[in-house]
Design a protein around this nucleic acid. Structure first.
Lengths: 140, 140
DNA sequence: AGCAATACGGATAAGTTTGTCCCTATTTGA
DNA sequence: TCAAATAGGGACAAACTTATCCGTATTGCT
């Protein structure tokens, strides 16, 4: 496991939140668990872009940060379930607000992100299909 | 300037927010500008841990993302001021909520962050039991 | 017998962000 | 005259995160 060499600054609330929410997929992992996707394989189907390896790593960190619990059922084939802790649940309204803000401003955000020169050209454009109908009302 | 090789996924609102808010100092930069610290030197005094170099880089990104504007006064010594755009201001309530959540839970957050083994050594003991009772059941 | 599904993680590579070091310039004040 | 304040940025190094590739194991279906 990677060990940090630089101690993070933990001066204010924002720093602290950063520490537990930083991670490319963490917020969405929390959201999908909140939606009832408890098993790793379900989560991976919901977030196809994440690899299983990284999904495991980030779930482990969420666990260490007491955002989720993990239950391993000693059956074969293996079965594992994650759940939000009470603490983790207190984050859900925040995540929802963030997602809603992103949705409200999605055209503008997409524009400023794509027109920024940090992206390497050649976007295959229109890769996406976006949302499953059940998700239409939610931040995604 | 660094150019990304991997196109980020921009499927949902949360992805989009991630793109513009990701960055170790960005949220705090926005907050301090909101509080009236407009000049780079003021911002650096507010966030001593960030280097000037990185502060400039992140300010530039916020500018590209239309979160802040930059005004250069042609005087000597140089004078520069940043301000939130109307768009940037719509983020402030969100940032405030996040910070408040972090403040409310700061003891717990500090504990789980510090007791986590990703931090390099030398934290004054405090064993930390964080039981993983279910773990023992499977051979992994 | 072979393969998919379930799940985990070490070693290593690639990608990305952040930090360090150095250079540019002018004015004011010690 | 020299230091400090103001602001910017190129080249590079270090730190950190994420991805790839492999290996472990069992059950059940074809």
């Amino acid at each position: 496991m990677y060990v940090k060499k630089i101690t993070p600054s933990l001066n204010c609330g924002l720093d602290l939140v950063g520490e537990v929410l930083y991670g490319k997929w963490k917020i969405r992992i929390l959201w999908f668990i909140h939606e009832g996707n408890r098993r790793p394989s379900e989560l991976q189907r919901k977030i196809p872009d994440v690899t299983r390896r990284v999904l495991n790593v980030q779930l482990k960190e969420l666990q260490d940060h007491e955002m989720v619990t993990k239950t391993i059922y000693p059956v074969m084939p293996p079965k594992v379930e994650y759940e939000l802790t009470a603490f983790g649940k207190t984050l859900i309204p925040l995540i929802q607000s963030i997602g809603l803000w992103g949705d409200e401003h999605q055209e503008r955000l997409r524009r400023v992100i794509l027109s920024q020169n940090k992206l390497s050209s050649a976007r295959p454009e229109e890769a996406y299909d976006v949302d499953e109908p059940t998700r239409a009302l939610l931040p995604f």
